[in-house]
Nucleic acid binder design. Structure first.
Length: 776
DNA sequence: ATAGGGTTAG
């Protein structure tokens, strides 16, 4: 999921290549200056006719060279030419500043701007644009307010800055305040709506005015493309008084991206011009529709290719996990850009080859935030959370800035490994960068807080999202449900309806699981049977699983089985899993065994099932079967996923496995656990030894339970997290039942809130009770 | 063909 988003981010980001500067610049500067001496007079005469002071033509030629060097990314050459100039105009300075900015050298540009003897209007405008490109809208606004005079360019720059950063209302205010408006201003406000997904408002604005520039027609059409509104886009295309290449390309992309390759091809043949954009649109259209062979055929036919075309083809192979073909193309590219490298890194990471991903990461000539996001996600995804964290720190040290996509990606990594402190830091940097708004980032932030066990903070973020979409509501509703706050989830669902948002199938999974996790059997049943009637949502396997869980929890095992028999599709492993859970809790070993065996048939690789079934046998002392299970696991090569738990303290993740003695504080931990054990027993705790698999003496079993990974993690957190703060522990598997009982006692004894995330849900232990109601 | 603001493909 996250890799898909990352791949999208790669494909959206724009990069400029930076060849190294060439030598012999001094010589060239001298040559230019010498040759221009004779031609100098002419330009002076011209200046008298125009009435404007025009510089010596030698200076002009140097300025042109500076611009050209900068366009080629040769900042050093530009600078030495600039330094060798005996006299300079403001154009010389402005060319340097602008060049630095387009090469991403913000600090150098700013230094030049400060040193410049006479800043003119253009200098200010360049800096404003530079700040905006550097994602520093705040600095742009300060410059705008400071500058001695403003022209329409200044206003347009600010307008587009607001638009690009999601501040549509500020953009509108700026537009209304502008003393003079031109075509670009009008396009700016139109783009503000389009870029921020407000296509209806864009259309209203468009219809309110008679004539628009071709650019604006294209912009509106592009808006419809993003919303996949093909008919509207085509209507605009047909109504356009004039078309340029962009118009054709936008319309062709529109069809290509929506799977209508025949229409795209037709328009491609009709188009008066076919440039790299046109060809690439067709190639990526085939790629996006999974037609790799077609894509490759067109790709090989292309008269000219640029990096984008190559990358589209490579991304196609990566998406289909054909890393060998992707590698062949990547190596055939004359100069791969950052996107090419990023695509390959993402590909290896999603294929589980983190070593190759890292090797490419280390070898790439320069990195951007997507590269970092890719490698961090790769590590997190493959379970190397420590390494993921380490790379976060490295990234900060390298001074890398995150963009919206990278923020989203990194936040979901934080969510996955529950790196809360880090997540909070990222949140802070989001606010600082002025990027905390907007669907994707806002929703990722919300999900991060939910998954890190901070449901209140999640709700704060939820409240701050101005344009809540279905995903925002679903994330919050599901978050409440997973935390065991069923009433809050259902209340939010009612608010959602009141806000006029239409629930979808994901919403209903949240609603049903809220009912299930809170034991609201009747409410859940009512929702389940009214879903289709009220919202046209047909129950899928997940909804049925929620219902089996809901009925099973209430002890209605027969009803649960009946529902399963009447499902319009074959029960999957998850449905049987829900039944197994219910059987286990209500002590129906026979049904549990049947369910577990069904799961074996469906998912022979599912190690968790072997363990669950072993537990089931162990709890009824059927040691022979326990032994058989162990043999079966060995024969099928299935390995039990080792259980481990972790805690984040001061930005560091501390991981524990069962009986762990590797932690530096382990002596202290074991002593503390002994002490807790004693106090728990005084309060009435009895170790649930039936959950120990092995056929050993009771006393030995109790000993084994005492040092489960989650117990070690909780003990560590109590000793290291300042009093008054909640304790947040994460376990990769389901929490052990004995630990669950123990944590209820511990929460009361030490007077702390313990929030435990296991592979299924959240448990909040407080003053002797858990929000799961002891059913999970 | 010297510097600043708007639209398209990954």
């Amino acid at each position: 999921m996250r890799f898909r988003r990352l791949l999208g981010a790669i494909l959206r980001s724009v990069h400029t290549d930076t060849p190294s500067s060439s030598p012999g610049v001094q010589k060239l500067a001298q040559k230019i200056l010498n040759s221009s001496k004779s031609a100098g007079r002419k330009s002076t005469r011209k200046s008298q006719t125009s009435g404007k002071p025009v510089a010596d033509s030698g200076i002009v030629k140097c300025n042109i060279s500076i611009t050209n060097y900068m366009r080629n990314g040769q900042c050093e050459s530009a600078l030495s030419l600039f330094n060798s100039m005996p006299s300079k105009t403001s154009v010389s300075w402005n060319s340097m500043i602008s060049g630095y900015l387009s090469n991403g050298r913000f600090e150098l540009a700013h230094k030049m701007f400060d040193q410049m003897p006479h800043r003119d209007l253009v200098s200010w405008n360049i800096m404003i644009t530079g700040c905006i490109r550097n994602k520093n809208l705040g600095a742009a606004k300060i410059l705008f307010d400071q500058m001695p005079e403003r022209d329409v360019v200044s206003w347009n720059a600010l307008l587009s800055g607001y638009a690009q950063n999601g501040y549509v209302d500020e953009a509108k205010r700026t537009f209304d305040e502008m003393p003079v408006k031109n075509e670009i201003s009008w396009n700016g406000i139109l783009a503000a709506y389009v870029q921020n997904g407000r296509i209806e408002e864009a259309r209203r604005l468009f219809d309110s005015k008679g004539s628009w520039a071709v650019v604006s027609w294209n912009c509106l059409m592009g808006g419809y493309l993003k919303k996949r509104m093909l008919l509207e886009a085509r209507q605009i295309f047909d109504r356009m008084p004039m078309r340029d290449e962009v118009s054709w390309n936008t319309m062709i992309s529109c069809y290509a991206q929506n799977g209508q390759m025949e229409e795209a091809k037709k328009l491609f043949d009709e188009s008066p011009v076919r440039d790299v954009f046109t060809w690439t649109a067709i190639v990526s259209g085939y790629v996006q529709n999974g037609m790799l062979d077609e894509a490759r055929r067109v790709f090989d036919e292309m008269p000219e290719k640029n990096a984008v075309s190559w990358n589209a083809m490579i991304a196609g192979y990566v998406q289909c996990n054909k890393m060998d073909l992707a590698r062949d193309l990547f190596e055939a590219m004359s100069c791969p850009n950052i996107s090419s490298w990023n695509t390959m890194i993402t590909g290896y990471a999603q294929n589980g080859d983190i070593v190759e991903a890292r090797s490419l990461f280390d070898r790439m000539p320069c990195r951007d935030c997507i590269s970092w996001a890719a490698i961090i996600s790769g590590y997190a995804q493959s379970g190397h959370s420590e390494e993921a964290l380490h790379m976060f720190v490295e990234m900060k040290r390298a001074g890398e800035m995150l963009n919206r996509s990278a923020f989203t990606c990194v936040l979901s990594t934080c969510a996955e490994i529950a790196a809360l402190e880090l997540g909070k830091q990222i949140h802070g940097r989001l606010v600082k960068a002025g990027l905390e708004m907007g669907y994707y980032v806002g929703n990722a932030l919300l999900a991060m807080y939910c998954k890190c066990g901070c449901i209140e903070e999640a709700y704060d973020v939820f409240g701050g999202i101005s344009d809540k979409d279905t995903v925002s509501w679903n994330t919050m509703i599901n978050g409440y449900a997973r935390h065991g706050f069923g009433k809050e989830a259902l209340k939010l669902f009612q608010n959602m309806e009141r806000a006029g948002m239409r629930p979808d199938d994901v919403t209903m999974v949240g609603v049903l699981s809220a009912c299930s996790h809170t034991g609201l059997t009747d409410t859940g049943t009512t929702y389940f049977y009214s879903m289709d009637r009220d919202y046209g949502i047909i129950a899928n396997a997940k909804h049925y699983t929620c219902m089996i869980d809901l009925l099973g929890r209430a002890g209605r095992l027969d009803d649960a089985q009946n529902l399963m028999r009447n499902m319009p599709f074959e029960p999957d492993a998850a449905s049987w899993g829900a039944l197994l859970g219910a059987s286990r809790i209500h002590g129906n070993a026979e049904l549990g065994e049947k369910a577990a065996k069904m799961i074996f048939t469906l998912e022979p690789w599912n190690a968790g099932m072997y363990v669950l079934l072993s537990n089931l046998y162990a709890s009824s002392r059927r040691w022979r079967e326990v032994g058989e299970m162990r043999l079966k696991m060995r024969d099928t090569g299935v390995r039990k996923v080792p259980g481990y738990s972790w805690v984040e303290v001061q930005n560091k993740i501390h991981t524990f496995s069962v009986g762990d003695t590797t932690h530096p504080q382990s002596h202290q931990l074991y002593a503390f656990l002994e002490e807790l054990d004693l106090r728990m027993k005084q309060e009435g705790y009895v170790p649930a030894t039936k959950f120990v698999l092995h056929d050993v003496e009771e006393e030995e079993k109790a000993h084994m339970l005492k040092y489960h990974s989650e117990k070690l993690a909780v003990a560590f957190a109590i000793l290291n997290v300042p009093a008054g703060r909640p304790i947040r522990v994460i376990k990769n598997l389901r929490v052990c039942e004995d630990c669950h009982t123990a944590f209820k006692y511990i929460s009361k004894i030490v007077g702390r809130l313990i929030i435990l995330r296991d592979s299924n849900r959240f448990h909040h232990f407080n003053d002797g009770v858990c929000t799961c109601g002891d059913y999970w």
